[in-house]
Design a protein around this nucleic acid. Structure first.
Length: 379
DNA sequence: TTCCGGCGTT
DNA sequence: AACGCCGGAA
């Protein structure tokens, strides 16, 4: 048993259901897939709509339903026919799954399965689609949590986290279960989705028109748009680089950037395997990188640079060169004063700042690399 | 450009 | 838990 840290958001008061219901009856959009309770039509529409907006998906749903009006019709059609009709919708594996599922259903007879468990067993039918068919078509009292509903419930309960993964996903599921109107699950589920689609918008929610506002903790906190928390960013890839700063006749030795941004100029650098000795590797590679022998390397420090989800840790060295120059290695020597007019990335600025601070009368202690000046990137 | 979204796969 | 799928919207 473990201690409770803070209280869980309580269930949405059932007292708000009538307000939600009134709001829905007044504001619901008249959409083609809402005019039917036919399980196959619901299944098909949910499959189409989980990958496209309502605007784009509605006409496609109608076309597909006209072509395959029953699950048996799809089962007896070829996969190619479905794929042809699916063209432009994307996620073609889902069309194949739908076709396989239709054949399974037809083989078993008895039409579209009625229970969540049976539905889940069909290829391409996950928790969402199963709950949608069960509740919207068959009236089974199961909560339905799509992206819209997850956002609504995250806000109403001010649930920390992204509302999908781990504990926050579980908290959203509990809230959905607690708020479910078991007497009319279809209408209830549709109304929550519609509220998310029309009022509880991702970026700028329209709280004044929201029937759940009296209970909404995120609104009470004054920051409805802060929920759900942004999705965790993809884990950054960490890479080690070794870079060398060398001068020839007052000009910086630069090369075309092959690692980070094509078309930019950067100091010669190289990617390091884990545990590799930066100085050793850079010195050995210098002739092929810069076309000249590296006589001596002195460490200048470390620079960090991020591009999208890549994190570079760059060990920078001042390089003293010696010997003849190999003209076959493409190098672009640039005088520092001409740097402004060259395409270059933020990394070069950071490296040069480090080099400059190391070259100037040393402040006591290790010089922290100055932050690179903001530069207008691109074009 | 960045973000979003159900599901299957890994 | 993370990723790819794929097109649309912000």
């Amino acid at each position: 048993m473990r201690p409770t840290h803070g209280e869980r958001p309580g269930p949405l008061p059932a007292a708000l259901r009538p307000a939600l219901r009134r709001w829905f009856l007044k504001n619901r959009r008249d959409l083609p897939f809402r005019r039917t309770r036919d399980p196959w039509a619901i299944w098909l529409s949910e499959t189409v709509l989980q990958q496209t907006t309502v605007a784009a998906g509605a006409p496609r749903f109608e076309g597909l339903l006209a072509l395959f009006p029953t699950v048996e019709a799809l089962a007896s059609a070829g996969e190619r026919e479905l794929l042809a009709a699916w063209s432009g919708l994307g996620y073609y594996a889902r069309a194949r799954n739908l076709h396989r599922a239709a054949r399974l259903v037809a083989e078993l007879g008895g039409g579209v399965p009625r229970t969540v468990e049976e539905l889940r067993a069909l290829p391409g039918v996950g928790p969402y689609t199963a709950a949608a068919v069960a509740s919207l078509a068959f009236g089974t009292p199961v909560p339905l949590v799509d992206g819209n509903v997850s956002r609504v419930l995250s806000r109403v309960g001010a649930i920390p986290g992204d509302g999908r993964t781990g504990a926050s996903g579980a908290a959203v599921a509990r809230a959905a279960e607690a708020f479910l109107d078991r007497r009319r699950p279809a209408e209830h589920n549709e109304s929550l989705m519609e509220l998310g689609a029309l009022v509880c918008l991702p970026r700028a929610p329209l709280c004044p028109g929201c029937p759940l506002r009296p209970a909404c903790r995120a609104h009470a906190l004054g920051r409805p748009e802060a929920f759900p928390a942004p999705r965790a960013r993809k884990a950054a890839v960490r890479l080690r680089l070794a870079a060398g700063v060398a001068r020839r006749a007052g000009r910086l030795v630069l090369v075309d950037d092959a690692h980070l941004v094509r078309g930019h100029l950067v100091v010669p650098l190289l990617e390091l395997a884990a545990g590799a000795d930066a100085a050793l590797r850079l010195r050995a590679a210098w002739p092929s990188l810069a076309g000249r022998r590296a006589k001596r390397l002195s460490p200048l420090g470390t620079v960090r640079h991020a591009i999208l989800e890549r994190r570079y840790v760059v060990e920078v060295f001042a390089v003293e060169e010696a010997g003849p120059t190999d003209e076959r290695v493409p190098v672009r020597p640039v005088h520092p004063r001409d740097l402004e007019s060259e395409p270059r990335g933020g990394l070069l600025g950071k490296v040069l700042a480090l080099s400059a601070s190391a070259g100037s009368p040393a402040p006591p202690g290790r010089a922290r690399p100055a932050r690179a000046p903001r530069k207008p990137t691109g074009g």
